[in-house]
Every structure is written in structure tokens, then in C-alpha cells.
Amino acid sequence: MRALSPRVPIPAPRRPRGAATILPALLVTLALSALGITYPAAAQGGLWPGSAPVLCTVPITYRIGNVDARFGVDTAEFAAAVREAAALWDREIDGPAFVAAPRGELVIELEFDERQERWHARQEAEASLTTLRDRYDGLLAELEGHRATLREARQRHDQLASAYRNRREHYEAQSRSWHREEDYRPGGARYRAAAVLQQMLLELEGLAETEERARERFNASLAAVRSLAEDLDDKISRLNEQFSEHRGFDKALFAYAHRGGISRRSITIFQFDDRADLRQVLAHELGHALGIGHVADPAALMFYRVTSENRGLTRLAEADRAALADACGTMDVSPAAGAGGRASGSAR
């Protein structure tokens, strides 16, 4: 293993004043290391824990450990994702940062537990919610159809009712002039006018029944929409309550152990959403393996969680490169190489 070779020399560390005062703590640390005590990453919140106290020496050899089949990812696919994640760091140094080896120091694994199960449960819940929303949209469309039918039936009824009133007024006005006997006989003027009114009245009754049936269908449709809206609101409320807790801080874990002068590092991935998310989580944890902690820039890979600004990064942000220089030495990298590009359309 060789040390990182920056283009600007790293000054030798100076012996701190009062070194004797820190000797007991150093002895305790060495004693714990000899016993093989594991130093898990410091809890810093967010999607990933912080980095462990490791030395920045490259290349770091790694090997793929257990890959739980329940993730639906085989070992070859997982190894490819690791290589893609490592490539983000490779391009920032003089040579590869991570090299696969059969007995690699860094073990990278996929461990399936309640975290991924919870994610699957959430995906199923969201799919169920989508189905419910589609049904609701369908009922809304039906309701609009019934509303249009009811409006049309009402308009036809109102138009005929208005015509009937006008015809009746005309009939009553004419009736004053009907004095001849033949006006009242079948086929006479009064007889014909009365027949027209009777026919219009029958049509009005039919239209009234049509309007009433349309109103009943509309009211039934409206009740179904309101009922489903209540179910939808209740389901959304329950899902928000069930899944609103931010559990991103335990998507993965980087750990470091030292036993008998031999260092062991491990990255365990517990949960990821898709291939792009897996690659980003791996790249972040590989940063911790280099000794890099979290940074404050939400657009950086080493920010403590995935954001809309750092999702799908294809290059390290300036904050990541600065953190790499702090952990591993001053890096002479052109600004263009560190531009925070991201893959278009990638989603977590």
C-alpha cells in the first residue's frame, strides 16, 4: 500500500507541545486497538454516519463480502456499482483510490434487514395510494359526466316548461273567443289546443323523471367521491404518520477496526432505493473510508444526506475536494475537474 502522492508535498507533522499530557490517552487508544476494538463512524445524523479515524493511504484494497439476494442485486452488479462509485474518487488523485483484491482490507457488503423491508413497504404503500388516486380520478370523471347529464336534463325540462307556460297562457287567452259549438268538438280549435297542452304536459313529466334519475345518479356519484376522498385522506394521513420519520441516517455504516497491527475497514449498505442511489451511497461511504467526514455544502457528495442538489452527482463538488485535501493532503486538481456535474434524469 502506498501513501497518497499529492502534487504539493505534505509537511511533516510537528510534535505538539505538552505531548506528555496526551500519552495516557494514546496508550489507552493503542491498548484498545490491540484488543481489536472497532471504531464505528461517529453519529452525525443524516443519511450516512461520519467517518472513522483512519489513515488516508491509497490505493485502499477492497473485496466484496456478503451480498444478500433479497436486494435483487447479484455480486457482479454490486461490484460494478462499487467500481462506478470508486471512480468518483479515482479521478481526483494520482492513481486509483480503490483497488479490488481477493484479500482486500475494505470489505463492502449488502445486508438486508428491516430498513430495506421498510422501504419495500413504503413502495407498496405508495403504489396502493397511486391506485386509490387513479380510482378517485376515475370517479371524479364519472361525477363530471353525471353533472353534465343532469345539467342537460334540467335545461331541457326548463325549456319545455317555459314553452308549456307560454302555450297555456295563449290557450287561456284564446278560450275567451271560443263561443262556437264546433270549437269544443273533436278536431275543433279548443280541442286541438288542449291536446297540444296535454302532450306537452306528458313530455314535461317524462323530462322531470329523466332529470330526477340524473340527479339520483349524480348524488350517488358525489357520495362515492366524497367517501373515497375520506378514505384517501385517511390513508395519506396514516402513511405520513408511518413513514414520515426520517430514517436515512442508517442507510449504511462505515466501520474501522485495528487488531495486532492489521487494519480492517468495512462498508455495510442496509438500504438503497435504486441503482443510482446505491452508487451514491457507496461513493459517500468510500469517502469515509478515505478518512473524510461530512461537509456543510448540500450540493456535495459528503453532505450528510441526499438532497435535490447532490442527487445523481457524477463529479465531486468543491467541498468534497477540499475535504479530500484536508484528509489526504493538498491536492493540485484543476477547478474544471471538480465541477459538480450530475447525470441528467437520474433519480434516487
Rank of each mutant, 00 (worst) to 15 (best):
D183N: 14
L207S: 00
Q198W: 03
V196R: 08
A141W: 01
L197E: 10
R213D: 06
A148Q: 13
A189P: 04
A224Y: 02
F249E: 13
E211V: 08
S237F: 08
R247I: 12
A194L: 10
R247W: 15
H170W: 09
S244H: 14
S175R: 15
S263I: 10
D234F: 07
R264K: 12
A223I: 00
S263Y: 08
L207F: 03
Q159C: 01
A208G: 06
R226Y: 03
D233G: 05
G206A: 06
Q159A: 11
D250G: 05
S266H: 02
L253Y: 11
A214W: 06
I269Y: 00
I236Q: 12
I236R: 12
A195C: 00
N166L: 15
D158R: 07
S162C: 06
E245I: 09
Q155A: 13
R215S: 13
Y184L: 08
Q271M: 14
A163E: 14
L197K: 05
S237R: 15
R154T: 11
G145D: 04
A173P: 02
S177V: 04
A163D: 14
A161N: 11
L143W: 01
G187L: 04
R192S: 08
A195R: 14
F270V: 08
L197I: 15
H170Q: 15
E211N: 00
F254T: 05
L202Y: 09
D183S: 05
A214Q: 01
A255K: 11
G188W: 07
L202M: 04
E209G: 02
R135L: 06
D234R: 08
A220D: 14
S175C: 01
R165S: 06
F243W: 03
F218M: 09
L197Y: 12
R192G: 04
L139R: 11
N166C: 04
